[in-house]
């Protein structure tokens, strides 16, 4: 599903984002991306949705070389990757409902059934009562859940979440975690960047640890730290 071949990303002038990362993620896997702040987790994710270009190396998603992907095809790549952004990236001028609906509208789906789907997913993340609010009327955790709902809503084959539980209380975090897990069980590949040690240790999934842009550990059934 995803292949990194010796990928290096350097932010001008000389900040290392990722350095010589090679890895392989199979379809249907659940992967935790861990590492200290500034270790390159978000960079990894931004490279995956072609928000950034690598300075060296090649990235494949779904068998496609992102380096040779034509510009006009990028939107179609992104529709197949649900992404929960670390900074949420909600449209401030749209309500919670319309923010989630937008992810369906870009694909040309704006029917009654898509609206129903949006309502369902918002109920699922516990925001059924805030559908008409604007993002700046929500708490950080609530905004995060809207971002999660938007990433799920059209059931993409690949789901990437950049610290989706970073602003949530333990109970809600567990709820979101269970949701991601269920989604993964339906065959969706899930990549989740996180600092949540307890969660990672409990789930015992594949763990890829980054440090200063390099992969320092890639463990089948790992924990947050070294065992």
């Amino acid at each position: 599903m995803i292949k990194f071949e010796d990928v290096t990303k350097i932010y001008p002038p000389d900040t290392i984002g990722l350095e010589s990362v090679s890895l392989h993620i199979e379809k249907g896997e659940f992967v935790f991306l861990v590492g200290p702040s500034g270790s390159g987790k978000s960079t990894f994710i931004r490279l995956l949705i072609k928000e950034l270009e690598p300075d060296r190396g090649r990235i494949f998603v779904g068998g496609r070389d992102l380096g040779s992907l034509r510009r006009w095809k990028i939107p179609y790549l992104r529709r197949n990757i649900g992404c929960v952004f670390q900074d949420f990236k909600l449209l401030p001028s749209k309500t919670v409902f319309d923010n989630v609906l937008y992810a369906l509208q870009v694909t040309g789906n704006d029917s009654g059934s898509s609206r129903r789907k949006v309502g369902e997913i918002l109920n699922l993340v516990g925001l059924g009562h805030k559908m008409g609010n604007y993002p700046d009327e929500l708490s950080g955790g609530e905004q995060q859940r809207v971002s999660i709902a938007r990433a799920f809503v059209n059931h993409p084959p690949l789901l990437i979440a950049d610290e989706p539980t970073g602003n949530l209380d333990p109970d809600t975090s567990v709820g979101i975690m269970q949701l991601l897990y269920r989604i993964n069980k339906t065959g969706t590949t899930v990549i989740m960047a996180t600092h949540d040690r307890e969660m990672v240790d409990r789930m015992r999934q594949r763990v890829i640890a980054l440090e200063q842009g390099q992969v320092v550990r890639d463990q089948r059934r790992g924990g947050y730290g070294e065992d």
Binding site: E51, W72, P75, R78, R79, K89, Y102, A103, V106, R150
Partner: peptide, 8 residues
């Protein structure tokens, strides 16, 4: 943001 969620 629109671009990042897949709008053409």
């Amino acid at each position: 943001i629109m671009k990042l969620v897949g709008a053409t």
